[in-house]
Amino acid sequence: MSNVALLRIDDRLVHGQVVTKWIQDSGANTIIIVDDFLATNSYLSNVYKMAAPKGINVSIYSVEDFCTKEHAGDFADLKLLLLFKSVDSLVKTFDSGFFTEKVQIGGLGASAGKKLVYRTIALSEAEAKQLVDILNKGVEIYFQVVPDDRPQPLESIVQKKFSILN
């Protein structure tokens, strides 16, 4: 999909950095959130839609609905900021035939079974393996919290933090 301005995994989804920095930096004119739970929760979906800046449309789709619309070319005239809440949602989307050249990881909070791997970003070993599988399909995956940060490639993070994957 050549009209993806930025694909970002960030469990906060639409928040200050996204609306003030990433939209401008990427040149996106539309935010699409791909998340099965949010696609069925109208209350939370409306919260994220209201958080977007004026003039930026926010749509929320399940993985299946997003892939159907993407394959049909429904987003061809848009410049997209794709947001995923989790690695699992991204993996499901790739497994459904979606492909993009770059994936940015910008925010995944710590929880049980995860370790801090870069700044405030935490991954479990299972998530690291899933990302390495996507990397092995020819996708550039990098960590970058804000546009001023130098992107850190997944490979270097995995080598430092997950010796079992080396």
Score class of each variant (00 low, 15 high):
Val146Ile: 15
Asn29Val: 05
Asn29Lys: 11
Thr40Gln: 11
Leu116Met: 10
Leu81Trp: 07
Ala126His: 14
Phe84Thr: 04
Ala122Met: 08
Leu82Met: 06
Leu38Glu: 02
Val19Ser: 01
Thr40Ser: 14
Leu80Ser: 07
Ile141Cys: 04
Arg8Val: 05
Lys114Asn: 00
Leu80His: 00
Ile105Leu: 00
Arg12Lys: 01
Ile164Gly: 14
Ala39Gln: 08
Ala72Trp: 03
Val63Gln: 02
Ser62Asn: 07
Leu82Thr: 01
Gln159Glu: 11
Asn29Ile: 06
Leu108Ala: 06
Ser124Tyr: 08
Ser163Arg: 10
Thr93Glu: 02
Ile32Leu: 00
Arg150Phe: 11
Val158Glu: 08
Val14Thr: 07
His15Tyr: 01
Leu44His: 12
Thr100Ile: 15
Phe99Glu: 14
Thr68Phe: 07
Val158Trp: 01
Met1Phe: 10
Ile121Met: 05
Ala76Gln: 04
Glu101Lys: 15
Asp11Tyr: 01
Ala52Cys: 10
Gln17Met: 01
Leu108Tyr: 02
Asp25Arg: 09
Ser62Gln: 07
Ile164His: 13
Val87Gly: 00
Thr30Met: 13
Ala28Cys: 11
Asp95Glu: 14
Arg8Lys: 07
Asp11Asn: 05
Tyr43Asn: 14
Asp95Ile: 09
Lys92Asp: 11
Ala128Met: 08
Ser59Val: 08
Ser42Asn: 12
Phe99Ile: 15
Ser59Leu: 13
Gly55Ala: 10
Leu7Met: 12
Gln24His: 13
Ala39Val: 08
Asp95Ala: 14
Gly109Lys: 07
Lys79Phe: 01
Lys54His: 14
Ser89Cys: 02
Ala76Asp: 04
Gln159Lys: 15
Val18Ile: 04
Lys92Trp: 01
Phe99Met: 15
Arg8Cys: 05
Glu127Pro: 01
Pro147Gln: 08
Gly73Gln: 06
Asn166Ala: 14
Arg12Thr: 06
Leu90Lys: 03
Val58Gln: 09
Phe66Ile: 02
Gln152Lys: 12
Cys67Thr: 10
Leu80Asn: 04
Cys67Asn: 09
Ser2Pro: 12
Glu127Leu: 02
Lys85Val: 06
Ala122Ser: 13
Thr120Ile: 14
Arg119Val: 08
Lys54Gln: 14
Phe37His: 12
Asp25Asn: 15
Ser124Met: 10
Lys160Glu: 09
Phe75Tyr: 05
Asp95Arg: 13
Ala128Gly: 09
Met50Ser: 15
Gln24Trp: 10
Lys49His: 13
Arg12Pro: 03
Val14Ile: 06
Phe37Pro: 11
Ser124Lys: 04
Cys67Val: 06
Val91Gln: 09
Arg12Ile: 00
Gln17Val: 06
Ala51Ile: 08
Glu64Gly: 12
Asp148Gly: 15
Ile31Lys: 04
Ile105Thr: 01
Met50Asn: 13
Asp133Val: 11
Gly113Cys: 07
Lys160Cys: 07
Cys67Arg: 02
Ile32Pro: 01
Phe84Lys: 05
Asn3Ser: 01
Ser42Lys: 14
Gly113Asp: 00
